[in-house]
């Protein structure tokens, strides 16, 4: 089976003599659904950052989508990111853009025509139940709604990989459910690889998944 992410003795840190993730080795299959758990401050976000190139490996090897992440060039990184959809804990929506344009962002970057983008955005806003909010601005929505916008944005360009960092962290039940349904849907229907960092794995999950736990800088799989 193809691997989307391969880590070999991967070490991550922000400063030189610090270790946040230490010599981790694991591989994530294409089309799989993966949960990453761990205590607060254990390095879950840091690991996820390394997957989208916001932090470079301190030591060891990391391949994402067949691309080596050490000393990656800007253009290669941009190319890779155009095939990844990220959902951030703090949403990271563009405040001065409407909901519609926010969802459209990955499509604008990939250079899709207005027509194709618009219909894709309408479809996604339907999935996240925000069709009637499309003209509003992010700060006019609730946290749950903003995260649903971010979810729609992450799916807009049919990415091969979705990375979600505590996407339902402190959301209401309804918004959480919408987001889990979409993540599961993308995985089962589009065969998108999904990697989710979370505090607790929801019981409603029906797809088969792998579960990694981070503890003291070590990553191990929980059967």
């Amino acid at each position: 089976m193809d691997k989307v992410i391969i880590a070999e003795n991967l070490s991550l840190s922000y400063k030189e003599f610090e270790t946040i993730i230490s010599k981790a080795s694991f591989a994530i299959d294409a089309g799989s659904f993966v949960f990453i758990t761990g205590a607060s401050g254990s390095g879950k976000s840091t690991l996820l950052k390394s997957f989208y190139g916001a932090i470079e490996p301190r030591a060891g090897q990391l391949m994402v989508g067949g691309v080596k992440m050490s000393r990656i060039s800007t253009s290669k990184l941009n190319f890779l990111r155009r095939h990844i959809g990220i959902v951030f804990q703090d949403y990271k929506l563009i405040k001065e853009w409407t909901i519609e344009k926010n969802v459209m962002l990955p499509l604008i970057i990939s250079g899709y025509t207005k027509d194709i983008s618009s219909s894709q955005v309408q479809k996604l806003l339907g999935h996240v139940k925000l069709i009637h909010q499309s003209g509003k601005f992010p700060l006019e929505l609730s946290g749950g709604e903003q995260q649903r916008v971010a979810m729609a944005r992450a799916l807009a360009h049919n990415p091969i990989l979705i990375l979600a960092d505590e996407p339902t962290g402190n959301l209401d039940e309804y918004s959480s459910q919408v987001i889990w349904n979409l993540l599961e849907g993308a995985n089962t229907q589009l065969k998108t690889t999904v990697v989710v960092v979370t505090h607790n794995i929801p019981s409603s999950i029906t797809v088969p998944y792998k579960h990694y736990h981070i503890e003291m800088g070590n990553i191990h799989e929980i059967a």
Binding site: I84, I86, K92, I94, L105, P106, I108
Partner: peptide
């Protein structure tokens, strides 16, 4: 800065 960094996270080249 904020908008530009968000766009970078989705792979927008500098000129865009």
């Amino acid at each position: 800065a904020e908008r530009m960094s968000i766009m970078a996270l989705f792979g927008a080249p500098v000129w865009l």
